[in-house]
Structure formats: structure tokens, C-alpha cells
């Protein structure tokens, strides 16, 4: 049940327990128990909403920042990652294989704020060797969802 449950609520976290129970062919209290366990185990970490900000009048700039760092003795990259993710304006931090080490995403109101973060905070950290900042121009698909998708049923209304 766990895998199927997670697959459903990953796409629709607002679904209620009774409906979840029907879809999974389980009892409502079983679903409730499972979700409580998943939250406790830190498998479910939050319930977010996917927003297409481009359709609002609110200005947002998103940047992907590639960061090269020197790993710390005994702690590898974890210590550096922590120093970076503790900044509240940082949205995601991933350890990456390949040409650089950490991928940091940042969301701010203006380009200037992002520039400020990179030059004043990120670059000045001792172990940061270099950074490369990429700005997102347009979002086509986010979290598996195609933004601006037209939902039209192409099928004939009755088929055998």
C-alpha cells in the first residue's frame, strides 16, 4: 500500500482519507495510520502547492547556481551543504556528480537580490572555489506537471 499511497499523494496532497481508502481498497483507519507513520519516519516531509507564478503579477526570479567547493576533512560535502542550506533564501541544495559539486537554487524578487546573495554570501564562504549562476527564463514543466497544458479529450464520445 505504501508505494501506491505515496504515488497518489505526491500528485494530490489534498485528497481526503476516505477517498484515499477507496482508491487503495483499504480501510480509512489503515490509511490514517500509514500516513502518520510516514510523517513520523520523515518520509512525508511536507505538503506543498505547485504554483505557476508566471501567471500572477508577482515578480520572481529563480536561479540555479553551480558551486565548486573543497570537501571538509571527515565530513565530505555535508558540512558545506549545511552552511549553504541554512540561508533561508536558499530553496534547494543537491550534491551533484560531474563538473561541479553542489547545485543550489534560489528564488528572489529581483535579479539584484540573487546577485547580492552570490557575491556577498556564497562566494565569500571559505571552501567555495567557484560559482556559476544560471537564471531560469521560462518554466515549461515543474514537478512532473506540464504548466499551461491544454486538457482536451481527443477521443470520440462513444467507441466500442
Amino acid at each position: 500500500m505504501r508505494e501506491e499511497l505515496l504515488a497518489i499523494i505526491e500528485k494530490n496532497s489534498r485528497i481526503d482519507f476516505s477517498e484515499l481508502a477507496v482508491l487503495l481498497g483499504a480501510k480509512e483507519e489503515e490509511v490514517l495510520k500509514e500516513i502518520t507513520a510516514l510523517e513520523k519516519e520523515g518520509i512525508i516531509c511536507g505538503y506543498h502547492t505547485l504554483i505557476n507564478w508566471e501567471k500572477t503579477s508577482i515578480e520572481k526570479v529563480t536561479a540555479l547556481i553551480e558551486v565548486k567547493v573543497t570537501p571538509q576533512r571527515g565530513q565530505g560535502f555535508d558540512k558545506m551543504a549545511e552552511r549553504i542550506y541554512n540561508y533561508p533564501e536558499v530553496r534547494d541544495v543537491y550534491l551533484i556528480s560531474g563538473g561541479y559539486d553542489l547545485l543550489v537554487t534560489l528564488e528572489e524578487k529581483t535579479l539584484k537580490e540573487i546577485a547580492g546573495f552570490v557575491s556577498d554570501k556564497l562566494s565569500t564562504l571559505d571552501s567555495v572555489l567557484s560559482t556559476a549562476t544560471h537564471f531560469i527564463l521560462k518554466k515549461y514543466k515543474d514537478h512532473g506537471t506540464i504548466l499551461n497544458e491544454k486538457n482536451h479529450d481527443e477521443r470520440e464520445v462513444i467507441t466500442p
Partner: peptide, 9 residues
């Protein structure tokens, strides 16, 4: 609205 279709959505 149709529930009459015999093919996948």
C-alpha cells in the same frame, strides 16, 4: 460528458 469510451484516456 461521456463514460462511453472503449479506449484508454
Amino acid at each position: 460528458i461521456s463514460l462511453g469510451v472503449g479506449e484508454p484516456d
